[in-house]
């Protein structure tokens, strides 16, 4: 059992890890074809995984409805939305699902006039959350937050016309903050992240990090 649960996955991780790392350095058509095949397999596995995800989603909400847990009414909406979308997806504007997807159907209507605006609404809330988060951060309680507050004010003013009206140096200072200290910090983080990613990849390829298989070691 341990052979199938541990050894085989570790072997696959090692072989595929080394193979795909080397693939990056080989421009030959065979190498490109291998990448294409692996990418296709990835998409196929992802396609099957959708069924697992859908089962999880419906099972979760069915349990919520059955147990009448707080907010179970929202779970009814999940079923309602999914069933309606599925029906119109299958009808496919009268051409049915075995034909190519038709444009301008009810299915599209649900997407463009319900899902997209709902997503945009949630996205727009971000502006208010930024304001409240900024208020908390910019309260000048410590030396660091004071520096942050001053830098933020300069960058904000430098990005709008009024900054230039106050002083022509403000946009220049804002640009300098973004191009020098900000970029330096960003690159520092990226270098650390890249090294961390390489180390994690090696740990996985050589089977040192196994917790993603389940269990600690």
């Amino acid at each position: 059992m341990n052979f199938f649960k541990r050894t085989i996955p570790l072997l696959i991780a090692f072989v595929m890890g080394v193979l795909m790392a080397m693939q990056y350095y080989v421009p030959h058509k065979l190498s490109q074809d291998l990448l294409e095949i692996v990418t296709r397999w990835d998409r196929i596995i992802a396609g099957f995984a959708v069924f697992i995800g859908a089962y999880s989603l419906f099972h979760l909400h069915w349990t919520r409805i059955k147990r009448r847990v707080e907010g179970w009414g929202y779970s009814v909406f999940v079923y309602f939305g999914a069933i309606i979308t599925l029906i119109f997806g299958l009808i496919n504007g009268g051409k049915f699902f075995w034909n190519d997807k038709q444009d301008g159907t009810m299915f599209d209507w649900f997407y463009y006039y319900i899902q997209v605006p709902a997503g945009a609404t949630i996205f727009s809330i971000l502006a208010f959350f930024i304001a409240s988060a900024a208020y908390r951060t910019f309260r000048a309680r410590t030396r660091e937050s004071t520096v942050l507050l001053i830098a933020a004010i300069l960058v904000m003013l430098g990005r709008v016309p009024i900054g230039n009206y106050i002083s022509q140096y403000i946009p220049a200072v804002a640009d300098w903050i973004m191009a020098v200290p900000n970029l330096a910090a960003k690159r520092g983080i990226l270098l650390g992240v890249s090294l961390g990613a390489i180390a994690t990849s090696l740990k996985i390829i050589f089977g040192i990090e196994r917790s993603y298989l389940g269990g600690g070691d």
Binding site: I45, A46, A49, Y212, L213, G214, G215, G216
Partner: peptide
């Protein structure tokens, strides 16, 4: 869904 399946396995093993 794939992350979910892996997470289920990871938590179960833990």
């Amino acid at each position: 869904p794939i992350v979910m399946s892996v997470s289920q396995e990871v938590v179960k093993e833990s």
